[in-house]
Nucleic acid binder design. Structure first.
Lengths: 190, 190
DNA sequence: TTTATTATATAACTTATGTTATATAATAAA
DNA sequence: TTTATTATATAACATAAGTTATATAATAAA
């Protein structure tokens, strides 16, 4: 029929992601994407009805990349894996991470809320966490999530001293988790 | 000489702050400010050379409001006061708080770095923190800052269950601080 | 080979926004 | 009262961005 396709949907999303990574999500424009892939804006409008639709596809891409990062972790401890994946994402894609935190993205919120019950179930299986009530586990998890979010943002904002390697950050995360567990246990025995 | 001034610099900054509070800093435009105060854009350009200059003035205003919030706290414990002021700011001006976290504002960073040595000095005076090395104090402070940032962002993003009052959040903050102190002390005695 | 299809390029249109030039009118000084 | 000054309003200009209409040219089918 017509001429060969030179610019695919994937290529376009790739370009959008690249711009988001280096300049932030808000810096994405149709013309910039076109320039990035060496085309005009026409192929973009063939693949996406509007920039909103393109942004949705970008969010999907971001989620899938973050899940890829998570799948690369396999310590067996879901908290450790999630924490490490989050820190890596915040470090490697700091602008995107900040944009997501800032926009308070609803897909992220939904994802968040879905994962919490699963994590509580994980915690119940953990021998180290034996003897805690559901409420206590919730509090421990909440504290860990708060600490992880704070640390990830510090990483994304370059507020962590340069001497800290990712392993140091993981140690810090573990340490905060242990702090919470230890003090909860102590308050029980008292 | 000319006619009476009807629109002052203060009024303009007020309007900009109001827009920032309700729609976010990025939603501020010259025309919107003008509409807010019931003028044309002319008075704004008499008071500010450009929108950049106006934004600087807005940042100053934001800093002064956050310091006002801090000055309203007077528990005597600087960590408590800072923590509470930060949570109140995140709750009352959530959009602005998020914008500041996202933009990774340099004035904020400078302010942050200036306050840390002062806090360490405070910590040295605290009887509860007696016997810790400077490094240990730094680690405890770092953990507290991480937790406080994470919690503030959760508040700003509406991720904290509605049942939590500000006092509950303060308890959580204290609890996290105590977790860090307690476990540092235990690791010493071991 | 001719023709219909369609991917792409180009340029224009639209809207939003920062900025500026000019006009108007209120006020104080002469 | 007249005049110079200047705060304000208005409208235009410039630029950036999303979007769309039209032209071009590459490809497959007839």
């Amino acid at each position: 029929m017509g001429p060969k396709v030179k610019f695919t949907r994937e290529q376009i999303i790739d370009a959008a992601f690249e711009i988001a990574k280096t300049e932030g999500i808000n810096a994405i424009t149709m013309r910039k994407i076109a320039e990035q892939i060496g085309s005009s804006v026409a192929p973009i409008y063939v693949n996406f009805k509007s920039i909103d639709e393109l942004n949705e596809a970008l969010i999907d891409r971001i989620i899938s990349i973050s899940q890829e990062l998570l799948s690369e972790e396999s310590s067996g401890n879901p908290f450790y894996d999630i924490g490490r994946a989050s820190l890596r994402f915040a470090s490697e894609y700091s602008l995107i991470f900040r944009d997501l935190v800032m926009t308070n993205n609803s897909s992220i919120k939904v994802y968040d809320e879905k994962i919490i019950p699963a994590l509580i179930e994980e915690m119940k299986k953990d021998p180290e966490l034996e003897g805690f009530s559901e409420d206590e586990l919730m509090t421990i998890l909440f504290k860990m999530r708060i600490f992880q979010l704070g640390l990830s943002i510090m990483v994304a904002n370059g507020l962590v001293p340069e001497v800290y390697e990712i392993q140091d950050l993981m140690d810090l995360l573990s340490s905060a988790a242990n702090d919470a567990i230890l003090s909860t246990r102590l308050s029980k025995s008292r």
